[in-house]
Design a protein around this nucleic acid. Structure first.
Lengths: 197, 197
DNA sequence: AACTATTGATTGAACGTTCATTCAGTCAAG
DNA sequence: CTTGACTGAATGAACGTTCAATCAATAGTT
């Protein structure tokens, strides 16, 4: 709404950027504040503590992910098309906003990801569940729990992105070969009944 | 060798355990020392700094992973058998030693994982590469870069373990359904020429 | 219009704590 | 006696958080 909300977002974005580069430990509140153009004390008008800022950031990032991805999904398309679109959109989002991916990775495996956080609402997880449920219900995917399918697919996406982001330096392979990965994943999860469509 | 080496290992194991629970930020050197039964200063006889201790721990964990996994692999078995054995062994190791997985996740996405660390030697990565190269060479797997296949497979393993470790609380599915995941992965990477063996 | 009062956000210096690291002194083995 | 590991109190820097003081905007009064 007003500038008050702007400032909150400004602080979140600054924290996101700085944590991506320097980790939780390496980003003091004072620097986040300076980067956002406010005084250190101001951060505490919007967040009760550094911990709470970081948890808020987690929800902020997940909400961003959901809005970016769901906006580009067309539920009326055939599921196979939706799947490849989802894959490409995920790769795009993660590569365009490396901070999203780096922050999420850091957060998920950190002590900030407490049981309370984990058991809170998770619109992004719910959306993913529904997505794969659509695939199962339409008999395009193997008749498995949508959770399992989501695990499979997200695991491959994250792992691929991680590989490109962290290990780019070392081993490299042709960009075009990367295009084959979603096809492999698809081969793994598609319903064999429907193979010769 | 002597007690000197024992003490080094003791410090590494203590750090591993504590970092798993409390993260890098939450594990002061003094506590690591106490947990290992030595004085704070002693840590600095074995490691130049906390940073160096953490990097050493990274190599220690990867070496442990390599030795556990490679010992249980039989290069003379048919590749499909080797694949499912690898899968199960990875799951077992990660579930038996959650500290391995949690530490690796934290480390990889942290600023400790500097370019220097990334460009150093990586026996575990090399072993994985060779493993999948065997599959490609024997025409059991699709004719792709072993790196890509490794990414696919490790991504699914890590994602599955992460799911079980972090999200156990929330959504759960039948244990037996989990057994279907390696089959899906296998369906994705196997060479279709060989389908009807 | 001019002026004052009130409210609530904002500032940043100061506080107290925590922590990595050091080092002078102790100890044990050869 | 010598050597080198070991100890743990001491050091100093860094950081999260607080709060008295300032500022800006709006409302109220004449």
């Amino acid at each position: 709404m007003d500038q008050t909300q702007d400032k909150r977002i400004l602080i979140l974005e600054s924290a996101l950027e700085l944590i991506r580069e320097n980790g939780f430990h390496g980003t003091p509140v004072s620097i986040v504040a300076k980067h956002a153009g406010v005084a250190a004390g101001t951060v505490y008008t919007y967040f009760k503590s550094k911990d709470e800022l970081i948890v808020a950031l987690y929800h902020y990032v997940k909400a961003g992910l959901l809005s970016e991805i769901s906006a580009k999904d067309h539920a009326s398309d055939p599921f196979q098309k939706r799947f490849f679109a989802l894959w490409n959109n995920l790769i795009q989002v993660y590569l365009n906003k490396p901070a999203f991916q780096k922050f999420l990775e850091q957060f998920i495996s950190s002590p900030y990801n407490s049981p309370e956080v984990q058991s809170g609402p998770d619109p992004w997880g719910d959306w993913l569940f529904q997505f794969f449920k659509d695939g199962v219900d339409s008999q395009t995917l193997k008749p498995l729990s949508p959770n399992i399918l989501a695990v499979m697919v997200m695991g491959s996406v994250i792992s691929l992105v991680r590989y490109r982001v962290y290990f780019k330096l070392k081993k490299s392979f042709a960009e075009q070969e990367l295009q084959l990965i979603p096809q492999m994943v698809w081969d793994g999860i598609k319903n064999p009944q429907e193979t010769n469509l």
